[in-house]
């Protein structure tokens, strides 16, 4: 459904992605693992057209991706950027409404917001509260909920576990699993390999801008190289 073929991205002279090829099939959760600076976030930014490709192609549903970020969102590929980026002075509800900005149909936006409140009852309780007053984990849920309001067919999450307490990491991963169970395809970028491999079907390991390992999550979790580098024995 989402396919990267030999994708290169450069920031000036630095080549952040050096020929990434990977694919995400309909209905899957796919993990993209790797250390700091491996190119995980750049991979997502390339797909959401926030950074230009210097070589290679990304196709979505068999079509080449549009080259403007707003057209990508409209097409149903939605990116939750790293660091949550919740508007701290807007309420939870207003943050969610932003997610529906690209959608002209008000009725379906409010239907999706209700759907988010069903999925994340905690947010329904906090709907009138300002984003900045929420805990980190709650803000992450707002960021995910906001992306869901955009009506994604593929959701790309950039390190949703970052800076969260272990219990909250588990809760966020559970939410991602439920979102997937309701039919949304997910591409999950994580440093927390253990948490990510617990819910994903397949995974890719990115090192220095290239994919070095890939396979079913259960196989990756056993692979000695992954265990050594990311999981610890």
């Amino acid at each position: 459904m989402l396919e990267f073929t030999d994708v290169h991205v450069r920031y000036g002279h630095v080549e952040a992605l050096r020929g990434v090829s990977l694919r995400v099939e309909r209905g899957e959760i796919v993990a993209l693992l790797g250390n700091n600076g491996a190119g995980k976030s750049t991979t997502l930014c390339a797909a959401s057209a926030l950074v230009p490709l210097s070589k290679g192609t990304i196709s979505f549903d068999g079509e080449p991706l549009p080259d403007k970020p707003w057209d990508v969102v409209r097409g149903g590929l939605v990116h939750v950027p790293e660091g949550r980026r919740v508007f701290s002075t807007l309420t939870v509800l207003e943050n969610l409404q932003l997610g529906g900005f690209a959608c002209q149909d008000k009725a379906s936006v409010s239907r999706r917001i209700d759907g988010v409140f069903d999925l994340l009852p905690l947010l329904a309780k906090r709907r009138g509260q300002q984003g900045g007053t929420l805990s980190g984990g709650e803000q992450q849920l707002v960021a995910i909920g906001r992306a869901l309001v955009a009506g994604p067919r593929v959701l790309m999450l950039d390190e949703p576990s970052m800076g969260l307490a272990p219990l909250m990491v588990a809760a966020v991963m559970d939410v991602v699993r439920r979102i997937n169970a309701e039919g949304t395809t997910v591409l999950l970028v994580e440093q927390n390999a253990r948490a990510a491999l617990g819910i994903t079907h397949r995974g890719y390991v990115l090192e220095n801008g290239v994919v070095t390992l890939s396979g079913p999550a259960s196989v990756l979790a056993e692979d000695p190289r992954v265990v050594e580098a990311y999981l610890g024995s």
Binding site: S48, L50, P69, W70, V78, H79, V80, R85, T89, F101
Partner: peptide, 14 residues
Amino acid sequence: FIREDEDAAEAMGV
């Protein structure tokens, strides 16, 4: 949205 966080606005389809 742009004033507060241009990147987030762009990522949300503005």
